[in-house]
């Protein structure tokens, strides 16, 4: 038996694949680029959704992980280009899979570090502390001159993936699409696992979880680090999409936008981030084409969503969520 939500999800996944392929076939490669943006932002937000949707951890600092992933890609590529060794005699690389692993590792480790301190607090403290740590990373990136500082870092040619011409918009889109689907699969696995149940239980009733002998702190920390790693992966892809990394990937507006994606789509839902990212990018493109003031209207739409349509797009399409 398919639930209504599953049908909506399948349609969404199929649409994200079909629209860019059709656009490509009809000679409109720019729409493929837009769809790639949707896929990457959805991946980043899916990472955040692990912490925020399942664990109830309102991180206002996920831009830090997004940017760190981006810089991992940019720095590895620039060292591969210049031939200078990076650390301990290791050289840079242009191989995407290797870059992805590094991006996830570094973002995950930083997530672990930030989480270790931030998760000692909760509620509004947690929101502000994650924000402040992200700002710290942001200011570091701006003022550290080795990798371009404020100017950012160009990746002259997109990185490589075995046997695929990644400069072709549609090939790069397919890579991002597959990764997004894998991440969504991982999300399903986590949600259904014992770990996932404990994480969700800790969100609803911390005391009860603690009395059963599970330490909520360690569960949350693990979730936070996985979430950071996934968002870091998205950052690395985003860097390759734009062939450019800059501190603005780390800015607090980015953190805000990631949360916005989840809420627009529907909090805690598997396809919430994808629905939200699609909606956001379509708004940006359509409203941005109509008026320079599109952010004003985005603000109004967002406000209306929070006040009157708390389930987001998926809430409208598929009814109330099973996982509140």
């Amino acid at each position: 038996m398919l639930t209504r939500e599953t049908i909506v999800n399948i349609v969404l996944a199929a649409l994200l694949l079909a629209v860019p392929l059709a656009a490509n076939a009809s000679g409109q490669p720019f729409y493929v680029t837009i769809a790639t943006r949707v896929a990457i932002l959805a991946l980043a937000a899916t990472g955040l959704n692990l912490a925020l949707g399942l664990g109830g951890l309102v991180s206002f600092g996920h831009a830090a992980f997004f940017g760190i992933g981006g810089y991992a890609a940019g720095i590895l590529a620039s060292h591969s280009f210049s031939g200078e060794p990076l650390l301990f005699g290791l050289s840079g690389t242009k191989q995407m899979p290797l870059i992805w692993v590094v991006a996830m590792l570094v973002a995950g480790l930083v997530g672990l570090l930030i989480g270790t301190i931030s998760l000692r607090t909760s509620g509004v403290y947690f929101i502000m502390i994650t924000l402040a740590f992200a700002q710290m990373v942001y200011y570091f990136a701006i003022s550290w001159p080795a990798y371009g500082g404020e100017d950012g870092l160009s990746i002259l040619v997109r990185n490589q993936f075995a046997g695929v011409n990644t400069m072709k918009p549609v090939s790069f889109f397919l890579i991002c699409y597959v990764l997004l689907m894998l991440a969504l699969g991982l999300f399903v696995l986590v949600r259904g696992s014992r770990f996932g149940s404990a994480l969700q239980a800790a969100r609803q009733n911390e005391v009860r979880v603690a009395t059963v002998g599970i330490a909520p702190y360690r569960i949350r920390l693990t979730a936070f680090a996985i979430s950071a790693a996934m968002t870091g992966l998205a950052g690395a892809l985003y860097a390759d999409l734009n062939r450019f990394v800059s501190p603005s990937m780390l800015s607090w507006h980015m953190s805000g936008e990631l949360i916005v994606l989840i809420i627009l789509g529907g909090t805690g839902r598997l396809f919430g981030p994808l629905a939200g990212a699609a909606l956001f990018v379509i708004f940006e493109y359509l409203l941005g084409g109509l008026t320079e003031r599109w952010q004003f209207f985005l603000g109004l739409i967002l406000l209306a969503t929070v006040l009157f349509a708390r389930g987001g797009l998926l809430g409208l399409l598929a009814g109330k969520a099973r996982h509140g």
Partner: peptide
Amino acid sequence: VIRRLYDRDHLDQVLATFALILIFSEGTRW
């Protein structure tokens, strides 16, 4: 806006006031 948010969770408050920033900034630019 704000008085509708007192009994909401912090996530809703963050988002609604984030939306207000967009509206204020763009409105002022206008």
